[in-house]
Amino acid sequence: MSEISLEELQKKFQNKIDKDVKIEPRDWMPDDYRKTLIRQISQHAHSEVVGMLPEGNWITRAPNLRRKAVLLAKVQDEAGHGLYLYSACETLGADREQTIDDLHSGKAKYSSIFNYPAISWADMGAIGWLVDGAAIMNQVPLCRCSYGPYARAMVRVCKEESFHQRQGFEIIMVLAKGTPAQKEMAQDALNRFWWPSLMMFGPNDAESKHTKQSMDWKIKRHTNDELRQMFVDVTVPQAESIGLTVPDKDLKWNEKENRYDYGKIDWEEFWQVVKGNGPCNEDRIRVRKKAKDDGLWVREAAMAFSQKRNNKAKVA
């Protein structure tokens, strides 16, 4: 077979992407595409897994049996989603163990929203409604991303997530229609989660260094600001419909542009939280690391057992 030049390979690769042909694990791909995908998918996987913690915090205190079962099933789904994504990541040659170690060492990032505390039951509503709502905005277009295993994982995730946002909104809605104490609890949760939810879409487009290349590769299908705008436009009427107030005095409908104008995001806060100075950064990583460390003897035992039994089978 004749040598194909790198340039030619890259051209063929981009051609495929432009024609919406999916890239599969063993196809040739540029190193940077692989690296960028590993970073993006593993960040996404970590977000699912770390995202289990703020809600997991309330499973044991859920107010009734139905809510307890729903929340448990929801947090379990997040573990599942983390797993689908780690699987997708492994197809790129990124070993799960190593990926998780990078999370624990602080080298890998996850969605900064999970560094905010979940301090009331209403936060379960706000997280489902706003945080999952924002996540879905991001994830739905990724079902069409160029990398096959990632796209397939996202299809699965999106299908399962559809109940997550609904259960969150239901929680908030019941509170908003409940006693004054409950309504106050709901408004307080919205106040605390609104801005961090907007930050979930990442820096403004002008500041976002990876956007252009990722869009060309079709591993990002909309810019951060586009997604953020979509989120604001669908969420504000939802809040109004249940009588809650979005905590943004600059928020107003822009008739001309057919969208909401919203206030300035506190990017200083965003970067502080990303850099590890949020209210819960240390706790989240400590807990995940503890789970892994405490499980070490279990994983070793299971492996030792499997090796023993294989040897026994060979002898017999």
């Binding site: 689908y84 699987s87 197809t91 799960r96 397939r152 699965r156 492996m303 057992f305 499997s306």
Partner: peptide, 11 residues
């Protein structure tokens, strides 16, 4: 449908 980790086939 995807992959996962396990120490033996039963698991």
């Amino acid at each position: 449908v995807g992959s996962l980790r396990a120490s033996d086939y039963k698991m």
